[in-house]
């Protein structure tokens, strides 16, 4: 089997994982805890997008609806739960986020059942480029991912609130002293984190199916990517998502299809033990 094909498959999966990892790394860097609800926020985005897609059949409307709904959910989570836990240990927040994750899944399960739903997009035959088959859907999804990433990086690096967010991630005490209002930064953070998971959810839903468990299943690879990339490093998260996606697929001729899932965990464990700050992380992030 051509390695080029495996790389292509790895990129397609890596983009989804990278988007989710970006959301996780931002929360981890700024709110300082691993957000286990990211997976179920992603599922929520998948459902929100699905209903918009069925109604309009427009990609733009689907994306916007998913972003709006999930960002709102994300903000609600912040105000109802995580803000009350400010100053507690990362573990308290982690446990609370697991609780939130279960609640989101329960609401989706009660409302829409456990059966699968699908984005009814017309399936098309592939383009053949230099002997490699490229599916138009994958190209479209990659485009969505790049637009989303460009927008996210635009917010982070070219707006004032983005600079404030990164300042808090770098050094929250210093940021506070220099007059950054943490409330505003946090609200923006959760809106952005929600928007990113929403797009990841729409992409995953379009590629596969929509069901209450889909996000939970992708949470561990996304965590792995966030850690591998270096906590708090947006570029690292996306790069790590892509690297893990490709590594996982490229490993299949060696380890087979069952163990390929273990590859990303093994990479994660190895990175943590030998280079705990990840690919792009700063040394101070360790311990």
């Amino acid at each position: 089997m051509s390695y080029l094909v495996l790389v292509q498959n790895g990129i397609a999966q890596g983009l989804i994982i990278g988007l989710a990892a970006l959301s996780i790394t931002l929360v981890f860097g700024i709110a300082r805890f691993p957000n286990a609800a990211a997976g179920d926020m992603l599922t929520f985005g998948g459902y929100a997008g699905l209903f918009a897609f069925s109604a309009t059949h427009s990609l733009l409307a689907t994306g916007l609806a998913a972003i709006a709904a999930t960002a709102l959910l994300s903000l609600l989570m912040y105000y109802a739960v995580f803000r009350r836990l400010a100053g507690r240990s990362a573990v308290s927040l982690l446990v609370a986020s697991i609780g939130v994750a279960f609640m989101i899944r329960a609401v989706l399960g009660v409302s829409f059942g456990h059966g699968q739903l699908v984005y009814e997009i017309e399936l098309t035959r592939p383009y053949i480029v230099g002997g490699v088959r490229v599916s138009p859907l994958d190209l479209k999804l990659a485009l969505i991912a790049f637009v989303t990433l460009a927008a996210a990086f635009g917010v982070l690096y070219m707006t004032s609130i983005g600079r404030q967010m990164r300042a808090v991630a770098d050094n929250s005490d210093l940021a506070r002293v220099s007059g950054i209002r943490p409330q505003r930064v946090m609200a923006s953070l959760w809106l952005l984190a929600g928007a990113l998971t929403a797009i990841a959810g729409v992409m995953l839903g379009m590629k596969t199916i929509v069901a209450p468990e889909i996000g939970w299943e992708i949470l561990l690879p996304a965590f792995a990517a966030a850690i591998f990339g270096g906590i708090g490093s947006p570029i690292g998260a996306v790069a790590a998502g892509l690297i893990l996606g490709v590594a996982q697929e490229l490993s299949t001729p060696l380890v087979g299809f069952t163990y390929k899932i273990a590859v990303s965990f093994a990479v994660m464990c190895a990175v943590l033990v030998f280079r705990p700050r990840g690919l792009f992380g700063k040394a101070e992030a360790v311990r």
């Binding site: 089997m1 094909v5 495996l6 498959n9 397609a12 989804i16 299943e217 299949t252």
Partner: peptide
Amino acid sequence: SVVYEPNQPSYRSELQKVLA
């Protein structure tokens, strides 16, 4: 013949091995 793990975002590598 290929055996795949469930709950994955894509089974295309598995599929392509079979199709090859």
